[in-house]
Amino acid sequence: MSVKVGISRGLLYYRYFPLWQTFLQELGCEVILSTPTTKQMVSQGAGVAVSDLCFPVKAYFGHILSLKDRVDLLFVPRYISIEEDAYMCPKFLGLPDMVANTIQPLPPLIDYPINYKGRKKATESLFYEKVGKLFSRDLKKIRRAYQVGLERQGNFRCLQQRGVSFEKALDLSLSSSDGPGPQREVNAGEPTIGLVGRPYYLNDPFLNKGISEKVMARGYRIITTESLTETEVNRQISKLSKRVYWSFGKEMVGSALHFAGDPEVKGIINLASFGCGQDSFNSEIVSYHVKRMGNTPLLSLIFDEHWSDGGLVTRLEAFLDVIDRQGKLNRKGKG
């Protein structure tokens, strides 16, 4: 019987799942993924978590609770750094410890670190070799599994960068090993809204209270932080007087600046977490530079485990009204 490895549908799942799942499956593991986030999961997660954690980590605990009794191992890697001169959020550095000290009993955790610092490029492959050795003695097989995983991961990110939605990119990259099919989607003339945030805020409709659907229902097209390549992000970041220390912070600030300079983007929505230290200044950097670069309307939303979406609806509606009314005037002016 194959080993059941549990993966929480939270946090870095939204960035690395194609690689994780492919790698584990290639080595004969059965991957058990938790269901999409539910109210019950969040209540239970928030119930066990210390109160000053951010909402996504609380939800992550809920996913762990829903998985722990039906898997042999839990995959909770310790992401410390994935690139030079930038770190992941401290909550990711301590995630396996927080999980282990909050929820008991637990199946064993796969919690090896990924730390770019000092190890350069080998860090990721070394991590997967360590994980692989839990399931196979054949190093060649492990390396091949990693290569297949990387390929699918590459396809997945490539699809996202062509504007394909998270769910669709995930499906496409996992269902075949062919290269990405669709080219970057051509804008059909709908006005575009740039959504800035971390992968888990952009893609978990429970966390973001369905913001994408709400924006699209008003006739807008959406592009997100994830549709930018690393080069595009770095090009924007290099204009700043000081580098951004956090990987996702870099993506958020870089994409906001990119959107602010894109005449097709009619408005920018910045998704931040209540109680997130990084977001508190990322949001400030974003609003400072967006304002300085011109007049793209910017809406900053702060999320927490509040159920009601009344406040969100009011702000979002008013924000889109601002853009609608500006658009109407511009059209009149031209006509």
Binding site: P297, I302, A318, V322
Partner: peptide
């Protein structure tokens, strides 16, 4: 004559 920005009290 057009709204360009707004804010509401949060918490």
């Amino acid at each position: 004559g057009l709204v360009v920005d707004f804010a509401m009290n949060t918490v």
